[in-house]
Amino acid sequence: MLEARLEQAAVLKKVVDAIKDLVQDCNFDCNDSGIQLQAMDNSHVALVAMHLKTDAFSPYRCDRNIALGINLASLQKVLRAAQNDDLLTLKAEDAPDVLNLVFESAENDRIAEYDIKLMDIDQEHLGIPDTEYAATVTMPSSEFQRICRDLNALSESVSIEAAKEGIKFSCQGDIGSGAVTLRQNNNVEKPDLSTIIELNEPVGLTFSLKYLVNFCKASSLSNTVKLSLSAEVPLLIEYKMESGYVRFYLAPKIGD
């Protein structure tokens, strides 16, 4: 059976908020390394991979591998009943029909209990190769969100170019064009505001802004986001959590 308790319901709320517009139904795979999910969007252009490691939970007990097939809209409805700082316990039998969620408020001894029906989801897992990326850029997640939103007002696509000096996001649309460049800067006092570029070689790729805007819903998970780029491979966007991550992979557009 599975029994996993999060100190803060907010963690799962944020994870679900981050991915629910990309993926409708998916398996939460529970095993001795924690709870993981991997799913593609309907158009197979983007892939999300999430891992909440066992450290994220206290206690964490999972006797055998369990796949919890969950409709994310349903899960979100139930999670709305939890306060951000409620204790959240997930429980399931070994071959479960339902996932049991218990929200406990430390302040007023309130205990809320919900069961959510599970579904059989036949989902294939993709092997994601270890990649040495041409460029890895760490930047404030709020800044990335703002850039994607601003450029999406002008265009469907964005070119991302990483070089030694900085990272440049540019787009061209019917009403005109736009470009935002972030120069490499190391903010010693506020490290989360830094833009750090690790470069093996300069790289430029084009991506659909619709998906990037969608990924930015994960911004509340982390103050920083890490973009990893290489020619001819999907862009990796990672939001790190205290004991886990949400990663998005986005297939590039082919040039002219």
Binding site: M40, S43, H44, V45, A46, L47, E124, H125, L126, G127, I128, P129, S157, T206, S208, V233, P234, Y249, A251, P252, K253, I254, G255, D256
Partner: peptide
């Protein structure tokens, strides 16, 4: 025109 690639053309099923 720019074409959109898919994830499946990069990552193979396990």
């Amino acid at each position: 025109a720019k074409g959109q690639r898919t994830i499946s053309s990069f990552f193979a099923p396990k």
